[in-house]
Design a binder for these strands. Structure first.
Length: 769
DNA sequence: CAGGCCGTGCTTTTT
DNA sequence: GCACGGCCTG
């Protein structure tokens, strides 16, 4: 494609981003603004202007994003050697070359979360810390979060000793250093370490840093709003002399703060690089005007952001609809039958639909309704291929062959399948190996020297090590053959083939798939074939990426998983207080957490191209109990028309099954009344009519257009109130409508924060301030 | 050493 | 409400 016509297809700001070559560049790209296209064209443009492709490094977070970008660059510049990689893969490569610099051997293992947990558990046992009282997963999370703050074990311990920490921190202060030592002894790193070791490498070796700075003269980072401290330091470290750092992202789509991502990194880009050019991509090519206006109105309520407008030439489209249901059963049934109706009318096909929810737990009831209504669907969740037990087992054999010090892999397979090396034997071997200073494999090979072990255990251990030692890539010839050899000798799949349980058949199929993967790898890399390379792809690649767009199925996923995708018709279910915003963010004293929740809903809404439905119910099952819900405070910040199904007049919903009669509803839910917001909008009940309706914000409704005579409105933010039990407090938030109007109070005594239903609580207003 | 029973404790999850 | 992990029994 000649580049004149190419530029013609770009908007003015897109062109500015594409044409920009030297110096820092910040691309603030709103949802659906053609960001990936801009980045890839920019790379192509740079190369056409004489930049050496090998001096360009493009970094993404996911393999999927990296793959897409690589494909698009390849299409524009066939054969160009631009390095497109994920952060973790980039660091893994760098560390292979400089492993010694951080105390590792080049054949180090990469521990995933499961390995990590296992090693932490092992470490805790050695420290005599009860893994029941202190859950390894939680300890692991705290260690990971410390690492995200770039707090080494030494720093954590020091920090802990300087001020009195709590019980958990005392445990972490003991486990963290021991865990790091165990990792080193295993010649292994966890995901966080890949980044941290790289930072250490760059800090401790100024000459390496400047070598990389010079080698990667042009650095592009996608989704910059999701970078954590370590990633930020890596990127900035290699952009000091050659300050051609191009950061792209959208602060409004930062939804991984809880994993250490720092929205501040993108917000302060212009401080870090004062000479930066800033390009805003504000034109949206995805959604209708109604959808964008509604999403924009929501996100405008965030304080921590860069103001950015969302504009589109797309048609106005249908208004965003808020569907109000009696309960989640009805919610799921109506969604399922509505999808069927729209498909039957020929407007849409199943793969045009997506259903998003805040927590995975919500998917179950939707899935059930979809199958009952014969709606084909796929769930974007479940265990990733490489996380399945049988795959991990097989890979652990491979890892142990490659890195015999790998404790997690040893522990995983030493008795899988069972070969008489039980827990007792293992812990005796552990203890002995650590006093003797031997790795587990070496200790097991000379188990007869261990006085605590019985003859049978010794025999089993020696047989195990002898078996592992005869596995070698050189002898097997290829990785797939090595895998076949392992499967054959270990009898890992014994019994599965004859078993008629679905699970065993699935396991067998998975194992076969791994062998197929391996042979594909073998042929793809030819003589370069190495255990290292194969293991690296399997530990850093997630198969969950391969969610298909053309399956003819409705897609279900969490709001987090939805980022970066688009669907013609989107349902966001459970837009209720405590779900989104999630209760945890409401309990937090950090207001930023609620803003992240708002961004999460924003991300969900902006996935929609033509139709967007938000849903809420009056009651929802929560941990086995059915509770009255409170509408999400975010609803008041969006624009929608209400389509009420909970009043028995409901729209198109005529499913006879399981629908509560009015009598049932009266009995079971004393406060099931249609809120005024709904009553006010009863004419909005048919989906087909909605396009004719005028837009109303929930806030408008709340401000008196509706009949609310019986509602106590006497609360305001900032007001001081008295509670008979909790004493004085200050009203921090008001949310919900009508009878669901809720008041959140921060009590002055201690840290108590409580939310009440305004109509029913014993709160006495005492005055303002 | 497997299979069942009970108690616990619950977001999100790019790598 | 359900899933996972630990513990106990056959």
């Amino acid at each position: 494609m000649p580049h004149t016509s190419l530029s013609d297809q770009l908007t003015a700001s897109q062109r500015r981003a594409v044409e920009h070559r030297d110096g820092p560049l910040l691309i603030l790209a709103g949802p659906g603004s053609g960001k990936t296209r801009v980045i890839t064209q920019r790379i192509a443009q740079m190369v056409r202007r004489g930049v050496d492709p090998r001096s360009i490094l493009a970094i993404t977070f996911t393999n999927k994003a990296a793959g897409e970008m690589a494909d698009r660059v390849e299409a524009l510049l066939p054969g160009a050697k631009v390095w497109v990689s994920t952060f973790h893969k980039f660091c893994a490569r760098l560390l292979r070359q400089h492993a010694r610099g951080v105390g590792l051997d080049t054949n180090y293992s990469i521990f995933d979360t499961v390995d990590q947990r296992q090693l932490i558990k092992l470490t805790m046992r050695e420290l005599d810390i009860d893994p029941v009282t202190y859950q390894p997963a939680k300890i692991a999370a705290q260690i990971s979060s410390a690492k995200n703050r770039m707090q080494s074990s030494e720093m954590f311990v020091q920090h802990y000793e300087e001020r009195i920490g709590n019980h958990d921190q005392a445990v972490v202060a003991r486990v963290y250093p021991a865990y790091q030592r165990a990792l080193l002894a295993s010649n292994a790193v966890d995901f966080d370490d890949l980044l941290l070791h790289t930072v250490a490498l760059l800090v401790e070796n100024p000459e390496l840093r400047s070598e990389l700075d010079a080698r990667f003269r042009y650095v592009l980072v996608d989704e910059y709003q999701d970078t954590n401290l370590a990633q930020y330091q890596i990127v900035t470290a290699i952009s000091q002399e050659h300050r051609n750092l191009c950061a792209t992202g959208d602060p409004d789509q930062s939804i991984y703060g809880w994993r250490g991502a720092r929205i501040g990194n993108i917000l302060r880009f212009e401080n870090d690089f004062p000479e930066a050019e800033v390009v805003r991509l504000e034109e949206n090519f995805r959604s209708t005007q109604h959808i964008l206006a509604s999403a924009d109105s929501l996100i405008a309520h965030n304080v921590e952001r860069k103001a950015k407008s969302l504009i589109t030439d797309n048609p106005q489209g249908a208004p965003v609809e808020l569907l109000n249901f009696y309960d989640e059963r009805q919610e799921a049934d109506v969604i399922a039958s509505e999808i069927n109706r729209m498909v039957a009318e020929g407007d849409e096909s199943y793969n045009d639909f997506a259903i998003f929810y805040r927590v995975n737990a919500l998917s179950r009831k939707i899935e059930r309704a979809l199958s009952e209504h014969r709606v084909p669907y796929q769930v974007a969740a479940g265990l990733a291929f490489y996380e399945r037990a049988e795959i991990k087992d097989l890979l652990a054999y491979l890892r142990l062959v490659h890195n015999p010090k790998d404790v997690a892999s040893f522990a995983r397979v030493v008795n899988t399948p069972t070969r008489g090396i039980g827990k007792k034997t293992q812990s005796r071997l552990n203890r002995w190996a650590s006093t003797e200073g031997l790795s587990l494999m070496v200790a097991a090979a000379q188990a007869e020297r261990c006085p605590q072990l019985g003859a049978r255990a010794v025999k089993a251990l020696k047989a195990f090590t002898a078996m592992i030692e005869q596995f070698s890539l050189a002898d097997a010839g290829s990785i797939s053959d090595l895998l076949r050899m392992i499967i054959d000798q270990t009898q890992l799949t014994r019994g599965w083939a004859d078993s008629d349980t679905e699970q065993d058949q699935q396991r067998l199929a998975n194992v076969n798939e791994l062998v197929t993967d391996a042979s594909q790898y073998d042929t793809a890399v030819g003589s370069e074939s190495s255990l290292e390379g194969f293991l690296e792809t399997t530990s850093l690649v997630n198969e969950g990426d391969s969610l298909d767009g053309e399956t003819g199925r409705v897609t279900l996923m969490t709001l987090h998983a939805a980022k970066g995708l688009e669907f013609p018709v989107v349902y966001v279910v459970g837009v209720e207080e405590n779900l989104i915003p999630h209760e945890r963010s409401l309990r937090s004293d950090d207001w930023r957490e609620k803003e992240e929740e708002r961004r999460l809903l924003f991300v969900g809404m902006t996935r929609a191209m033509r139709r967007l439905f938000l849903t809420q119910t009056l009651r929802r099952d929560f941990r086995g109990r059915s509770l009255a819900t409170i509408p999400s405070e975010f609803l008041m910040e969006t624009e929608f028309v209400l389509n009420n199904y909970a009043d028995g007049l409901g729209g198109e919903w005529d499913s006879t099954a399981n629908r509560p009669t009015h009598d049932e509803m009266d009995q079971s839910v004393p406060d099931h009344d249609v809120p005024p917001i709904a009553a006010n909008m009863q004419h909005a009940r048919s989906t087909k009519q909605s396009a004719k309706l005028s837009l109303t914000t929930a806030a408008d409704l709340l401000n008196g257009t509706s009949d609310q005579a019986d509602i106590p409105v006497g609360f305001a933010e900032g007001m001081t109130v008295r509670h008979p039990k909790y004493g004085l407090g200050t009203v921090t938030t008001l949310s919900g409508f009508s009878k669901n109007r809720a008041v959140t109070v921060q009590f002055h005594d201690r840290d108590r924060i409580e939310t009440f239903i305004a109509a029913k609580c014993p709160l006495q207003p005492v005055g303002m301030g």
